[in-house]
Design a protein around this nucleic acid. Structure first.
Length: 487
RNA sequence: GGGCCGUUAGCUCAGUUAGGUAGAGCAUCUGCCUUUUAAGCAGAGGGUCGCAGGUUCAAUCCCUGCACGGCUCACCA
């Protein structure tokens, strides 16, 4: 029984306490990490190691013990890697060997001191002269050979996943590398990183259902942001010409392989740029990150070959639809809605919604290599600048890779009168039954009334980008603690 | 939210063909073993078979409901 295993180990703590030994001391300072020793001495010859008079102090978790009676082999892992230790009766003395055998379990954190040598098989090993218990663990670790597979335990107790499955740690290290590279790329282009509120009085910037919360002292409802967009644009009004934010947004929607209620978005805004400028910028950004992380722009994602080599294809929604359904369907609302109905699309009598969803259902899945899909209808793009040739369309694009959306960008609407009209149109859509619409934001309109420079902005789903570059199928693999129902 | 699948020892999994109170490996415990690395050898303990009902002389197995998880569809990034 589990409690037997735990009881056995708790008794060891009692025994230590009785002997006046602290089972959780904090007075051991490692001199080296396992990675430092492995890289400095992994290739040294046994003779070279003999000449080293140094003693090395290492600390880490015991992950394997092989007991030979008068000697013990063990492996410890630290934050950088793992190394083998060898505890011999005639080197460490009978008391220390006995202490180790009686007290130390797999999972404990120990400090060891000793010299280096190579075993018969050539493995760099610490010849332990001194060992100290640093943290007694009382619960057993997952099994060493098969690792931990139960996804529920993997996500709920991610620390066990990280201990048992080394490749999991790699994914999270990669995630932070990707975020650093994005920062580096944007910083080099004079973008200024900012932080804007997460608690919003109006959940704007995207058409999505928000989480609600409540501020006691102010006696008011607040929303967790669904996007930072409207605050970043206020900063454009204030004179910051290139800003970006990387942070959490929250959407009160269903969970899936690609959706977590809280997710990380990068949004950037650049004054005097157009959405076409941002196509180039996004293309460069993705290529820079992918090349640095993977060393190539061609790679496999879940069995599909992806080629990021520029220039990326640019596809007009309306031109594509004209080919698919014919021009006459596009010009007749009745025929358009009939076509949408036949595809099972819930368009609610909203023309733009029907158009975009027909496009996505017919062509979206067919897109494998990165493609800028542009020319979104006005009524589903309430924050985007109107196209100067076709006032029913906006200067907006989405980036599709392998059937999924990775970025959304547009030239920004900076006409306060039009912006107010767009918000009003959103409210009419809400009346038609569309649940996810932009709310009227008077404060934002006031900001625009003071003059926002012409600009373009983009949002990139960081979690999905990490998934793509890590070849993992689920967003849960790139979030330390994905949302699960409470047990 | 709908559909399909899953839940057996601390971990990874068998199994119940056809209902008769459960097995392996690792881990744990006891011996032996001073260059092993999934160490080895000998022995031992460990399970309300997800939860709750029902059918039955008898349910881990059949039926129903529930919980959690996975896949998938719908919406969003």
């Amino acid at each position: 029984m589990e409690s037997d295993l735990v009881d056995q180990r708790k008794k060891k703590i009692d025994e230590l306490t009785e002997r006046g030994i602290d089972p959780f001391p904090n007075d051991f300072k490692p001199s080296h990490s396992t990675a430092q020793l492995n890289s400095a001495h992994g290739d040294s010859s046994p003779e070279q190691l003999d000449e080293l008079k140094d003693e090395f102090a290492l600390a880490g978790r015991v992950v394997a013990i092989r007991d030979f009676g008068k000697s013990i082999f063990l492996h410890i892992t630290d934050g950088s890697g793992r190394i083998q230790g060898y505890l011999r009766k005639d080197v460490a003395g009978p008391e220390q060997l006995d202490f180790f055998k009686k007290i130390i379990d797999i999972g404990d954190i120990v400090g060891i001191k000793g010299s280096l040598f190579k075993t018969k098989t050539g493995e760099l090993t610490v010849n332990i002269k001194f060992v100290k218990l640093l943290t007694k663990s009382i619960r057993p670790l997952p099994e060493k050979w098969h690792g931990l597979k139960d996804v529920e335990i993997r996500f709920r107790q991610r620390y066990l996943d990280l201990i048992a499955n080394p490749e999991v740690k790699e994914t999270f290290i990669r995630r932070q590398k990707i975020i650093k590279l994005i920062r580096h790329f944007l910083d080099n282009r004079d973008f200024f990183e900012v932080e804007t509120p997460i608690l919003h009085p109006i959940a704007g910037g995207a058409a999505a259902k928000p989480f609600k919360t409540y501020h006691n002292a102010l006696d008011m409802e607040l929303y967790l942001r669904v996007a930072p967009e409207l605050y970043l644009k206020r900063l454009l009004v204030g004179g910051f010409e290139r800003v970006y934010e990387i942070g959490r947004s929250f959407r009160n929607e269903g969970l899936s392989n690609q959706h977590n209620p809280e997710f990380t978005i990068m949004e950037l805004y650049q004054a005097y740029a157009t959405y076409e400028d941002l196509m180039s910028l996004i293309e460069e950004l993705f290529c820079y990150v992918a090349e640095t992380i993977l060393g190539t722009l061609e790679f496999e994602y879940q069995g599909t070959l992806i080629n990021l080599n520029p220039p990326w294809e640019r596809v007009s929604i309306m031109a594509s639809l004209e080919e698919i359904v014919g021009a006459e369907v596009l010009h007749s609302e009745d025929m358009l809605f009939k076509k949408a109905d036949s595809l099972g699309i819930n368009h609610l009598g909203i023309r733009g919604k029907a158009l975009v969803e027909i496009f996505e259902s017919v062509l979206g899945d067919k897109i494998v290599n990165p493609t800028f899909v542009f020319g979104f209808p006005l009524d589903v793009s309430p924050l985007a600048r109107r196209n100067s040739e076709n006032p029913e369309l906006t200067d907006r694009f989405e980036l599709f890779i392998n059937g999924r959306e990775y970025a959304n960008a547009f030239s920004e609407l900076n006409d306060p009168v039009d912006q107010r009209a767009r918000f009003m149109a959103q409210l009419e859509m809400k009346a038609k039954g569309e649940e996810e619409v932009h709310e009227m934001d008077e404060d934002f309109i006031t900001a625009l009334e003071h003059g926002m420079p012409p600009a373009a902005g983009a949002g990139v789903g960081i979690d999905r980008l990490v998934m793509l570059l890590s070849n993992v199928p689920s967003i849960r693999e790139v979030l330390f603690f994905p949302h699960l129902r409470p047990e």
